[in-house]
Simulated scan of single mutants.
Amino acid sequence: MMRLIDITEENWLEVIFLSTSKKLPTISEEFVASNALSLVQAQFEKTWTTKAIEKDGIIIGFTMYGYAEQQGYYELCRIMIDYKFQGNGYGTEAIQLIISEMKKIEDCNDIYLSTDPENSKGKRVYEKIGFINTGKLVDGEELFVYSF
Rank of each mutant, 00 (worst) to 15 (best):
D139H: 13
S120D: 14
M2F: 13
K84Q: 15
D116A: 08
E10I: 13
E69S: 15
S19T: 04
E30K: 14
Q86M: 11
G135C: 05
D116E: 12
A94P: 05
A94I: 14
G61K: 07
E30L: 10
N133H: 13
L137K: 12
Q86H: 11
T49F: 03
S34G: 15
D107M: 11
M102Y: 02
L113F: 04
G66F: 04
G122T: 05
P25I: 06
I60Y: 12
K121Y: 11
S114G: 06
N133T: 11
K123M: 15
M2H: 09
I111E: 01
Y83V: 14
M102A: 07
N88R: 14
G57C: 11
T50S: 14
M102E: 09
D110R: 12
I7Q: 13
F131V: 06
W12K: 04
A33D: 10
L113G: 03
T50M: 06
K46G: 11
G57Y: 10
E69C: 10
E127K: 11
P117T: 03
T50L: 06
L97Q: 11
K123D: 01
Y74K: 09
K84H: 15
S19N: 04
K128T: 14
K51L: 12
V125E: 00
K121I: 13
Y112W: 04
Y65I: 08
I58C: 11
I99A: 10
N119T: 03
R3P: 02
E10Y: 13
R3M: 02
L113A: 04
T50G: 05
M80G: 02
K136T: 03
E101H: 01
K55T: 02
K123E: 08
L39K: 13
T115M: 10
T134L: 05
K55I: 08
E142Y: 01
I81N: 05
N109W: 00
M1F: 06
K23F: 05
E142V: 08
A33W: 00
F44Y: 15
T20R: 03
